[in-house]
Simulated scan of single mutants.
Amino acid sequence: MRLFVSTILCLLTLSVPGALSTAPDTWVAVRATIQVTYTLDKTTWIPLRKGMSVPNKAWISTGPRGRLQLVRGSESIAFQPNTLAAIITRGGGATRKTEVVQQVGEISLEIEKRQQPHTTVQTPFLAAVVKGTRFTVEVGAGNAAVAVDRGLVQVTSFESGERSDLGAGQGARVDGSGMTVAGLGAKPRITRVAPSKPRVPATMTGKPAATSQVTSASTETPQSETGAEKSKSSSNSNAGGNGTGSDNGNGNSGGNGNGNAGGNGNGNAGGNGNGNAGGNGNGNAGGNGNGNAGGNGKGKDKDKDDDDD
């Protein structure tokens, strides 16, 4: 019987990554729901399950229903839904240092107490440095906040250079207008240091990209569409409205014909009826719509140019 149990434990150790045998500097998932994944190359996402260890420097993503708790010795980090962060460990033993790079979402940390600061949380707006404490960091699209349950956390705003040491029951928020602090008892004191640049960019949406996908996902910050891409994607809409042509042969500014900038319509660029600057037919500048950006009013006064060329 004992031989049978030993064999089963051995097979479990071999089949479950990170289970039962982990390095002392390795974070292990003691709780993991669905929609929790990690990546090392920012391309391929791997499901993170209970009992698995997390590779050093891996990016971890939780979806709208994803929750995760990692443990390393007496330390723990809890991920709330819609969170994207990486954990980087340097050194080992008494000289070990940990850096959490948090791009968006909410994490709660319980860090072992040491004489010197050894754990840092980097966000797009602030950095939090601790010797040993329990605290929460929340990052949105335009701000970040720290709330301290126990111990002492030093918080620094990158843009304003404001800095404050937060104790139990105190907190700080950093946004475009600077740092604000509050808490139980005396209000935390704010000092100033030289402003600096954050190491992680802010997201545009406040949500991690492709959290539910396990392959072909990316942690790169979503980018806005270029003008050409917008033209290609908008087939049947333009700013403006219908209207009778003015002196320069346009309808109301921008028109609303179905199509994109540069299309044709009735009366533009001199009011010559059909056809105008920018081409004709079915949309221009990459557009697929019918109409133009110059409106569909009837032109007048051939002596004046189109202001919207």
Rank of each mutant, 00 (worst) to 15 (best):
131 K>P: 02
211 T>C: 09
163 R>W: 00
289 G>D: 04
28 V>N: 05
78 A>Y: 03
72 R>Q: 15
214 V>S: 12
219 T>G: 08
307 D>E: 13
18 G>Q: 04
258 N>A: 13
165 D>A: 13
157 S>R: 04
171 G>T: 01
86 A>K: 12
293 A>Y: 09
241 G>M: 07
99 E>H: 01
182 A>D: 15
268 N>I: 09
5 V>M: 12
99 E>L: 06
188 P>V: 12
108 S>M: 09
231 S>M: 14
115 Q>C: 00
169 G>Y: 10
277 A>D: 08
45 W>L: 12
30 V>R: 10
93 G>E: 02
125 F>D: 07
110 E>V: 12
234 S>T: 15
124 P>E: 06
34 I>F: 00
48 L>R: 03
99 E>W: 00
122 Q>G: 00
238 N>M: 14
307 D>R: 13
227 G>A: 11
248 N>K: 03
89 T>I: 13
286 G>P: 09
78 A>V: 12
100 V>W: 02
188 P>E: 10
267 G>E: 11
42 K>R: 14
27 W>V: 08
190 I>E: 09
80 Q>L: 09
142 G>Y: 04
97 K>M: 09
285 A>N: 13
55 P>D: 09
1 M>Y: 14
34 I>D: 11
201 P>Y: 08
123 T>G: 07
212 S>M: 11
277 A>S: 14
149 D>R: 14
308 D>I: 09
262 G>A: 06
127 A>P: 00
71 V>F: 01
212 S>A: 15
132 G>Q: 06
139 V>W: 05
282 N>G: 09
36 V>S: 08
114 R>T: 11
152 L>H: 12
136 T>A: 12
248 N>A: 01
